[in-house]
Design a protein around this nucleic acid. Sequence first.
DNA 1: CGGCCCTTTGATTCATATCAACGGTTGTGG
DNA 2: CCACAACCGTTGATATGAATCAAAGGGCCG
Lengths: 214, 214
Amino acid sequence: MSITARSIETKTGSTPIAFPPSMIGNQKTSPLTTFAGGAEIYVPGEQAGNLYEVEFGAVRLHRLLSDGRRQVIAFYLAGETFGFEAERSHSFFAEAMVPTGVRISRQPDGQASPELLILALRGMMRAQEHLTVIGRQTAVERIVGFLLDMANRQGSLNHFDLPMSRLDIADYLGLTIETVSRVFAKLRAAGLIKLQSVRCVQIKDFQALGGLCA
Amino acid sequence: MSITARSIETKTGSTPIAFPPSMIGNQKTSPLTTFAGGAEIYVPGEQAGNLYEVEFGAVRLHRLLSDGRRQVIAFYLAGETFGFEAERSHSFFAEAMVPTGVRISRQPDGQASPELLILALRGMMRAQEHLTVIGRQTAVERIVGFLLDMANRQGSLNHFDLPMSRLDIADYLGLTIETVSRVFAKLRAAGLIKLQSVRCVQIKDFQALGGLCA
DNA sequence: CGGCCCTTTGATTCATATCAACGGTTGTGG
DNA sequence: CCACAACCGTTGATATGAATCAAAGGGCCG
């Protein structure tokens, strides 16, 4: 069964609750801030400058067009860092998709730490690779690629939780919720995956799935 | 009329010809290397580590899928810099689209210069914004946005050259060459642009075009 | 002048979106 | 403890924007 934290003290507003490090047990890191599923972490226009490292849970970055169309730019899982921007203020929404804990640190102001450069370069590469997915791949290719990426990022288990809804997946891959659902059904019918629950995917045939990627 | 350099000493191979600075007249910058239109500047797998600043001409970065589908990741015009990567080796093809001169400098090895960080963050932001274009915009929105972007980057002239072919534009925007051609025709028929030649666009109505963007 | 390549235009097809309805799960309140 | 409501996901029918297939112009170079 899928395990999702549901009893963690969380918040739905936008003012982080910071627990002192002593409460967490790790004296060296910044305090842990938690967010309820659906809670905004920051919004476009808000001043940037913090780095957010996901301790547990999952975060999405997205942008809205004026008529409501939405593009999810990236997902961040446990251990991953987000929040750095080229501009002074944020360009995207950052929202927790499930109960999530992040460690917030001040981005060295105007300083170019090697770590931040690596993050920026990797972020650029990820976005550039995602361009090919959205620009040139079919619905099946996009979703198979997405599932394999998720499996990798969760430690290459053949069995993992999707912390995001079908709508989030659709908006990440440039598809609709119905298309996502249909492709999942097709992969299941072909015996390539198994849905232990709506949010919990088991990969039955890595090799065959790999063959469906571009 | 459109002005395109055609008589410059260029090369079609992949070994840059470096002119000593004294030949160029600027003693402070790195030597100028020129490439013929269509010439490869680097290919995937090649060792990365150089920065390339476009002096004149235009470069495209692209990637190929195994079956030949192509995604153009970015265009670089005069004054813009490319070539930085998260990995040790290049992930993309870089090709001159027209006769092009670049200044190549060694990327400070493992060093995190503020300039490089800015480039990386801006590159990330550009790619992320392009995701929304490709993932959620219509053919007309993509092309109008592209034309306005090109106008901006060439100094907001209402009259500029496109250094790339229709195929390049299509592969950049996730469309086909035919769709690009039809949208151009439509914009021309609506009196919003004028094609002085295939490669030279005149913007007739910035405001109306802006209204067509998402 | 002739050939090649790029672009345009037209006819048709197709993948995915849209519209519509149903099903399953979760959480709540009587 | 059960009934209901809300939400999310699935499935089906139809519509449509862009792709594909096809062929006919230009412009440039040899």
